[in-house]
Write a protein that binds this DNA or RNA. Structure first.
Length: 663
RNA sequence: GCCGAUGUAGCUCAACGGCAGAGCAACGGUUUUGUAAACCGUAGGUUGUGGGUUCGAAUCCCACCAUCGGCUCCA
């Protein structure tokens, strides 16, 4: 007899000694039995037919899009169906690994003939046939020896390796296979499961893309083909997904950057090198002004350093050996003078330069903390395949600063620095970000410095984050080589995660450069460094910001804050008067002087996402007013010109994310 | 860097071995307009670059450059 506890806390007893999720669903109701696709047994996801042999907490999983377990079953099962379809069409493929992932699933495989997008329709057609056949996913298990022997016979090195790794990890691992239909008769695959009851439960799917991927993510290993797909329980959900993807594409900063004339990239200048156009320049300048205000309020000193540095500087800092391959090649002075063996590097970071400013003369404990800030432009030779719009580039400007302080001051400086990062995110209305506490990987030897200092630094960061109350995740192996850090991550419109602001704690570089200050005991001491950049890179931050606002920037950032649209050329004189008044008040304004009708002017202004359209005609001229329309199509009616200017100025100076004029 | 795809007018796209086109933008003219595209016209191109195949190449092949989707990397 078995006692089963259901999610609502109720219990049911069953006479059988073994039981399945399907039995339980059936006993609860016919409807649930029909909807059931899997089962959680004591929190573990299993097939509906998995035998339950002891008392357990059981939850029936049904085909719901918002249930991650349901989506796991669906996508994992669809990956199998896709793999079967591909093996039918490309008999030479050797399957490797096919998991569900966030936003879909993929299957890695080795294939002599490349699979391309042109093959997707017939793959999908074959998948549809398999789904229509409604074959059950049938699990069977083999003793390890038999399983390995079976895999040997199949001659697939990847599957063999998968099984071997599973056994290595857990000597008692159960080796299971899933047949899509009947074992021995239909297609089958080494697989841990679980799966949907049958292929007919797959509602709608799409093969989305194909790409190269390394076996076990190791670039030195064989490259496989990775075919990506997506699946939903219904066609309507798939249609919705496709629609969302299309909408997301319109928000892509590369699309909007072109459309709104914010930035451009010229192959003649070079890949990954951003040219800020006037409209984008406004945004950057406003962000920098905002930051400079904060620096002044928080006791920072502005410094300026050159774009190149002697290579020995980076050998001393330790950057050079670590990042040799991702730097622009060195400038060899021997090309000019054979006797001069020195080399210069386009600077990949600002800290060594700032360190030299600190080291320029002796420091007293009374001088600390010293906070050196610079919008410093750095150059890194990113791999060609990695470049992406403004978010991954080869030249970018960090809103960088380095804080030199006593060990006692570290905590206070970190708190204040973290506050600054959070202020930036708050001011720009970012809510959907992640704070990652990036720690060292104790198993790796890439980290410099004393492990005790590392422990201390990591614990300090943990304490600061805990004290701030922000949500965070720890990530082992994500630290810089010189210290642990707090990274603030956001996603772009196509789901890629990017690091924006960062706060890094560093005991290593002061050591390497032999930095000192004289303490109250009249003895030399070693300062501690904090590296911090609330925006991170101006390029990346702006790119993400474009997507965050979908190009509709708040007034304080908008390239043009208000556009004067005249009803006809008869009102050009009044339009010019309005324009001058706006400009005299420090508002970025322009005027559409075309002979088009007002509808066309509104349309153009909307496309540029200008916050306010000021429509002026006879009525407005008479009352020295403007008719205000927002880019969101709110008609605020006629507003006296002076009042509009006053209200817009308030919106701008308060750096409001929202329009203050929508009542 | 690796795998795959894609490069045609400022932008979005068509032509897919046989005369390189459209819409928008630009420019000129007409219109003088009241809240998401007035009308007519003009101009705009060595089809990313360089080779090759062919009577003939935007179209087929090769190399390079760039972009896109992934992988790897990311101080």
């Amino acid at each position: 007899m078995l006692t089963i506890t259901l999610p609502d806390g109720s219990t049911r007893t069953y006479e059988q000694s073994t039981l399945t999720g399907a039995d339980i669903a059936q006993s609860i109701g016919r409807r649930l039995a029909a909807d059931a696709i899997g089962v959680l047994i004591d929190g573990q996801l299993h097939d509906l037919t998995y035998p339950i042999t002891h008392d357990a907490k059981v939850a029936i999983v049904t085909a719901k899009t918002d249930d991650p377990n349901a989506m796991y079953l669906l996508r994992h099962s669809t990956a199998h169906v896709m793999a079967e379809a591909i093996t039918d069409l490309f008999p030479d493929v050797k399957l490797a690994y096919g998991p569900p992932v966030e936003g879909g699933f993929y299957y890695d495989m080795e294939s002599a003939t490349p699979i391309t997008e042109a093959d997707f329709p017939r793959i999908e057609k074959r998948m549809a046939e398999i789904a229509k056949e409604n074959r059950p996913f049938t699990r069977y298990e083999l003793p390890q020896n038999d399983a390995m022997a079976a895999l040997e016979r199949q001659g697939n090195p990847y599957k063999l390796d998968n099984a071997r790794r599973a056994i290595e990890q857990d000597p008692h691992a159960v080796i299971s296979f899933y047949a899509t239909g009947e074992p021995g008769k239909n297609w089958e695959d080494l697989c841990r499961g679980p799966h949907l009851p049958s292929t007919g439960r797959i509602g709608a799917f799409k093969v989305t893309s194909v790409a190269g991927a390394y076996w076990h993510g190791d670039a030195s290993k064989q490259q496989l083909q990775r075919v990506y797909g997506i699946a939903f329980f219904s066609q309507a959900q798939l249609d919705e997904y496709v629609h969302q993807q299309e909408e997301a594409k319109k928000r892509d900063h590369r699309v909007l950057g072109k459309q709104l004339e914010l930035f451009t990239i010229s192959p003649l200048v070079g890949s990954g090198l951003i040219l800020w156009m006037p409209r984008g320049g406004v945004i950057r300048q406003e962000l920098e002004t905002f930051m400079r205000e904060q620096l002044a309020l928080r006791g920072y000193s502005a410094v300026y350093t050159p774009h190149i540095g002697h290579i020995d500087l980076y050998k001393t800092s330790g950057h050079y050996p670590y990042y040799k391959d991702s730097q622009f090649p060195t400038i060899k002075m021997s090309q000019r003078d054979p006797d001069d063996q020195s080399e210069y590097l386009l600077k990949p970071m600002n800290c060594p330069h700032h360190i030299q400013i600190y080291a320029a003369h002796p420091r007293s404990y009374r001088d600390l903390p010293i906070r050196l800030a610079e919008f410093g432009t750095v150059y890194r030779f990113e791999q060609s395949g990695e470049l992406s719009g403004m978010t991954r580039v080869r030249g970018f400007t960090q809103d960088d600063a380095h804080l030199f302080c006593t060990p006692e001051q570290v905590e206070q400086e970190l708190v204040s620095t973290l506050d600054m990062v959070l202020l930036v995110l708050k001011t720009l209305g970012f809510q959907d970000y992640q704070c990652r506490v990036s720690l060292r990987d104790p198993a790796s030897d890439k980290y410099a410095g004393d492990p005790q200092l590392w422990d201390r630094a990591e614990n300090t960061l943990r304490r600061i984050v805990a004290g701030s109350g922000i949500k965070s995740v720890e990530a082992v192996g994500e630290a810089a080589f010189y210290g642990p850090k707090l990274d603030f991550l956001v996603r772009d419109v196509i789901g890629r995660q990017w690091q924006l602001g960062t706060v890094q704690l560093d005991y290593v570089l002061p050591e390497r450069f032999g930095l000192e200050y004289i303490g109250s005991d009249n003895q030399p001491h070693r300062p501690v460094m904090i590296h911090r950049a609330p925006f991170g890179s101006m390029e990346r931050f702006t790119g993400i910001l474009i997507e965050h606002f979908a190009g509709a920037f708040p007034a304080w950032l908008a390239p043009v804050q208000a556009s004067v649209l005249t009803i006809s050329e008869k009102f050009l004189d009044y339009g010019r008067e309005v324009l001058s008044a706006l400009q005299a008040a420090g508002i970025r304004a322009d005027m559409d002087t075309a002979s088009d009708k007002i509808g066309a002017k509104i349309r153009r202004s909307r496309e540029l996402k200008t916050p306010y359209m000021l429509i002026v005609g006879g009525k407005e001229q008479e009352n020295r007013a403007v008719s205000v329309r927002t880019r969101k199509d709110r008609d605020l009616g006629s507003v006296p010109l002076d009042e509009f200017i006053r209200r817009l100025r308030e919106e701008i100076t308060s750096r409001s994310v929202q329009s203050l004029m929508i009542d």
